[in-house]
């Protein structure tokens, strides 16, 4: 039972970045822009979040307060970086996949360059630990307390709140409806007076904000508050895209998909602690490949009748109406 608690406690901080970034991808793609730059946006957000933590870590500020402020910094950074994608993909009507790839390549190189010049290292190392041993009162609840309120990070709760907000914005507001219309049939949306360019900018910007936060939460919950230009976010941005496709571009299905992937990854990295898997004596690398292989298997079964937004990937051209 302790192993089970351990696995769940370690799954959640991994699932939250995947969830947030996949939600970001959902906003962008449902508005009609393929956002393959999520990997780069995550790393960009993580870098600035950690840079902020690095500068304030010696002050007397409250640890969780630093985390919240770092989150805002990361969100701003992600938002600004995503503007480069909107500029190219919406205003300049460039190929969205190529632009995204360029943005993905730029961040690790820029981080390595900056870190080597300023810190003489490959990234930013902070000495803050955002780990929460137990949440007062709530951790006393039997079973649930142990599962969700011990040995965790507050990123988990922020992530859930952001999921609920995203779902409400997406389904219950005029904005959400218009955004989705732009991804399905932008010309029809335009004909009833919706500004398609603005909605696509909004979709990509939301993905930038969520991607930046997701990246910072990855640095907090998975990397112990550090960022590194070499390993980056280890393909989490791409995994998030797979999570989004697996979750059929819908918020709550994305949550389930994110939990599934995070659980597989957690198992892969804690083989030594799971007696019956450890006894099998399989090379650990196989488990490390597991999330990627599982992605392929899942996509093979779900892609045949894909629910992808119809207009995604096609730059909107008013003249073609």
């Amino acid at each position: 039972m302790d192993t089970f608690y351990y696995l769940i406690q370690n799954t959640l901080p991994v699932a939250i970045p995947l969830l947030l970034v996949a939600l970001g991808g959902m906003f962008s793609e449902r508005s009609g822009v393929i956002n393959i730059a999520l990997e780069g946006i995550m790393l960009f957000g993580a870098f600035f979040g950690c840079l902020f933590v690095y500068f304030v870590q010696s002050t007397s500020m409250d640890t969780q307060g630093i985390l919240l402020l770092g989150m805002l910094v990361a969100a701003t950074a992600g938002f600004l970086y995503s503007l480069l994608l909107s500029l190219a993909a919406v205003t300049m009507k460039a190929d969205q996949t190529i632009t995204g790839t360029a943005l993905n390549m730029l961040v690790p190189a820029a981080i390595l360059l900056f870190s080597k010049m300023s810190f003489n290292s490959d990234g930013i190392t902070t000495n803050k630990n955002f780990y929460v041993k137990e949440v007062p009162a709530l951790s006393e609840i039997p079973v649930l307390g142990k599962l969700f309120f011990q040995n965790t990070y507050i990123t988990v709760y922020i992530g859930i709140v952001l999921l609920v907000i995203s779902a409400i914005v997406f389904y219950k507001t005029k904005f959400g409806l218009r955004l989705r219309a732009c991804g399905e049939h932008p010309h029809a949306a335009d004909s009833v007076g919706i500004n398609v360019y603005f909605m696509r900018y909004a979709g990509v910007s939301l993905s930038g904000i969520l991607g930046g936060i997701g990246g910072f939460f990855y640095a907090v919950g998975v990397m112990n508050g550090n960022t590194n230009g070499h390993t980056g976010v280890a393909g989490f941005g791409f995994l998030a895209l797979a999570v989004m496709i697996f979750g059929q571009w819908k918020p709550f299905k994305i949550l389930l998909a994110a939990l599934f992937f995070a659980f597989l990854r957690t198992v892969a990295y804690s083989i030594a602690l799971i007696p019956f898997l450890d006894a099998l004596n399989i090379n650990q690398t196989y488990y490390k490949m597991l999330p990627y292989v599982a992605t392929m298997v899942v996509l093979a079964f779900t892609s045949k009748k894909s629910r992808a937004p119809k207009a995604e990937g096609i730059p909107y051209d008013k003249g073609l109406r």
Partner: peptide, 9 residues
Amino acid sequence: AVIIYFSAF
């Protein structure tokens, strides 16, 4: 990376 970004448009 910057060259690719610009070559996209």
